[in-house]
Every structure is written in structure tokens, then in C-alpha cells.
């Protein structure tokens, strides 16, 4: 149990600024994406194993809470992907470039890049939701809340 506490206290109190935050964000986004991916593999596999449940899962994906989750997930995937690519390239081809000042800059650019991809994506996803709601009595009806 003390392992758990020591490690978590370390995560919270280590003061490595940008490098530290990007480590935490990479971890969190990786684990969050894995949680979703596990559910997603199972529900998509229902296409073959359980077609009724598959339709039910698709209905759920069209609901309002899932739209918010989906938009958050997209950010997680973009950040984790760009940051992961950065880590992989530096580790494999230029390990001597792991210097603190450069790292701090790179973290900021990674965040900017993720936002540049995410903002138009989120906007498009929201407009799909609004479009889907057209013709319905109420936006929320078509989003599957009521």
C-alpha cells in the first residue's frame, strides 16, 4: 500500500514543470484511451457476436453524454499521439536532444499542435450532432436523451 502512496505523492509533488505535466498528461490520456478502446473493441465485436447489442451500443454512442466523452477522447488521442511521436523520434534517432530547455519548448508546441487538430475536429463533431437533430422536435430527442 505504501508503494501506491509514495508513487502518487511523487506524481503530485515532483516539480518538473513542463516535462512533469506532459508525463502526467501522456499517462492519463494513454490510460483513458485504453479504457475506451477496451470497451470499443468489445462493442464493435458485437456486430458479429450479438447484433442486437451492437445496435444498442450505436444508439448509446449517439447520446449527449457520449458526444462530450467523444470530444474529450479526441483531444486525448491527439495529444497522446503527437507527444508519443515526439518521444519515439527523440528516443530512437536523437537521444542527445533530451535537454531540459528544448524539452520545455517541445511540450508547449505539442500542446499547440494538439489544439490545432482538436478545435476544428470538435467543431465538426458538434455540427454533426446539430445536423442530426434537425427535423426532430427537440435537439435532445434526437441525441437520445429522452
Amino acid at each position: 500500500m505504501s508503494n501506491l502512496k509514495n508513487t502518487l505523492v511523487g506524481y503530485a509533488t515532483y516539480r518538473g514543470r513542463e516535462g512533469h505535466y506532459s508525463f502526467l498528461l501522456h499517462r492519463l490520456t494513454g490510460l483513458g484511451t485504453l479504457l475506451f478502446l477496451t470497451i470499443h473493441i468489445v462493442d464493435m465485436a458485437w456486430f458479429y457476436w450479438a447484433p442486437d447489442m451492437f445496435e444498442e451500443a450505436l444508439r448509446l454512442y449517439r447520446s449527449w453524454p457520449f458526444l462530450i466523452g467523444e470530444i474529450a477522447l479526441i483531444f486525448a488521442v491527439y495529444f497522446h499521439g503527437i507527444n508519443g511521436l515526439r518521444i519515439a523520434i527523440v528516443d530512437m534517432f536523437a537521444p542527445s536532444k533530451w535537454a531540459i530547455a528544448a524539452e520545455r519548448n517541445a511540450v508547449r508546441w505539442t500542446l499547440v499542435g494538439s489544439l490545432i487538430l482538436w478545435i476544428p475536429s470538435a467543431w465538426m463533431m458538434l455540427s454533426h450532432a446539430v445536423e442530426a437533430s434537425k427535423g426532430a422536435a427537440h435537439l435532445l430527442t434526437n441525441l437520445g436523451i429522452f
Binding site: 445496435e55 491527439y78 465538426m124 450532432a129 445536423e131 442530426a132
Partner: peptide, 19 residues
């Protein structure tokens, strides 16, 4: 992953998906 996300979530969107 980026290709999958861009196609399925951003361009097509879950509202057009069915069996």
C-alpha cells in the same frame, strides 16, 4: 489511429452509422 479517428468520428460521425 489518426486516420481512423478522422474518418469515423470527424468526417462521417456516429450519427450516420448503423449496421
Amino acid at each position: 489511429v489518426f486516420g481512423h479517428v478522422l474518418m469515423q468520428d470527424v468526417l462521417v460521425g456516429v450519427y450516420q452509422m448503423d449496421s
